[in-house]
Amino acid sequence: MTADLIYSDASELAELIRNRKVSSVEVVQAHLDRIQAVNPKVNANRHTRRRCSGGREGCG
């Protein structure tokens, strides 16, 4: 499902979330994982900050 999420457009993602097939957390996590996987090759992001619910840093 992760590949489906990262290649889906915003309207498809909204529908999946609205129909509770995935959570918004899963969508964001899929994209963060993809960034982590490809960034060493493309060097597009200098730093990616992950935050938990409540604004805490460093979870997951």
Results as ranks from 00 to 15, higher is better:
residue 1 M to F: 09
residue 1 M to L: 10
residue 1 M to K: 10
residue 2 T to N: 13
residue 2 T to G: 13
residue 2 T to R: 12
residue 2 T to F: 07
residue 3 A to N: 11
residue 3 A to E: 12
residue 3 A to T: 10
residue 4 D to N: 13
residue 4 D to K: 14
residue 4 D to C: 10
residue 4 D to A: 14
residue 4 D to M: 13
residue 4 D to S: 13
residue 4 D to Y: 11
residue 5 L to H: 07
residue 5 L to M: 14
residue 6 I to D: 00
residue 6 I to S: 01
residue 6 I to F: 01
residue 7 Y to N: 06
residue 8 S to N: 06
residue 9 D to Y: 06
residue 10 A to P: 06
residue 11 S to T: 15
residue 11 S to E: 15
residue 11 S to L: 15
residue 11 S to I: 14
residue 11 S to Y: 15
residue 12 E to A: 13
residue 12 E to C: 12
residue 13 L to Y: 08
residue 14 A to W: 06
residue 14 A to H: 09
residue 15 E to I: 12
residue 15 E to Q: 14
residue 16 L to E: 04
residue 16 L to P: 02
residue 16 L to V: 04
residue 17 I to Y: 03
residue 18 R to S: 05
residue 18 R to Y: 05
residue 20 R to A: 12
residue 20 R to T: 11
residue 21 K to E: 14
residue 21 K to N: 12
residue 21 K to M: 13
residue 22 V to H: 01
residue 22 V to D: 00
residue 23 S to I: 04
residue 23 S to Q: 04
residue 24 S to P: 03
residue 25 V to W: 08
residue 26 E to C: 07
residue 26 E to A: 11
residue 26 E to K: 09
residue 26 E to Q: 14
residue 26 E to F: 06
residue 27 V to F: 02
residue 27 V to C: 03
residue 27 V to I: 05
residue 27 V to H: 02
residue 27 V to A: 02
residue 28 V to T: 11
residue 28 V to A: 08
residue 28 V to N: 04
residue 28 V to Y: 02
residue 29 Q to D: 03
residue 29 Q to A: 03
residue 30 A to P: 01
residue 30 A to F: 00
residue 30 A to R: 01
residue 32 L to T: 04
residue 32 L to I: 07
residue 32 L to D: 03
residue 33 D to H: 07
residue 34 R to E: 00
residue 35 I to H: 00
residue 35 I to D: 01
residue 36 Q to S: 12
residue 38 V to S: 00
residue 38 V to H: 01
residue 38 V to C: 00
residue 38 V to M: 02
residue 38 V to K: 01
residue 38 V to Y: 01
residue 39 N to R: 03
residue 39 N to P: 04
residue 39 N to F: 02
residue 39 N to V: 03
residue 40 P to A: 01
residue 40 P to L: 02
residue 40 P to G: 02
residue 40 P to E: 02
residue 40 P to T: 01
residue 41 K to P: 05
residue 41 K to Q: 12
residue 41 K to C: 08
residue 41 K to I: 10
residue 42 V to H: 06
residue 42 V to M: 04
residue 43 N to F: 08
residue 43 N to E: 12
residue 43 N to S: 12
residue 43 N to P: 06
residue 43 N to C: 10
residue 44 A to P: 05
residue 44 A to C: 09
residue 45 N to C: 06
residue 45 N to E: 04
residue 46 R to Y: 11
residue 46 R to D: 11
residue 46 R to E: 11
residue 47 H to G: 05
residue 47 H to R: 09
residue 47 H to T: 08
residue 47 H to V: 07
residue 47 H to W: 07
residue 48 T to C: 04
residue 48 T to P: 01
residue 49 R to D: 08
residue 49 R to K: 09
residue 49 R to Y: 10
residue 49 R to T: 10
residue 51 R to C: 08
residue 51 R to V: 10
residue 52 C to N: 09
residue 52 C to R: 07
residue 52 C to M: 08
residue 52 C to T: 06
residue 52 C to H: 06
residue 53 S to F: 08
residue 53 S to E: 07
residue 54 G to A: 12
residue 54 G to L: 09
residue 54 G to R: 08
residue 55 G to D: 15
residue 55 G to A: 15
residue 55 G to R: 14
residue 56 R to K: 15
residue 56 R to T: 15
residue 56 R to C: 15
residue 57 E to T: 15
residue 57 E to W: 14
residue 58 G to R: 15
residue 58 G to M: 15
residue 59 C to V: 07
residue 59 C to A: 10
residue 60 G to F: 13
residue 60 G to S: 14
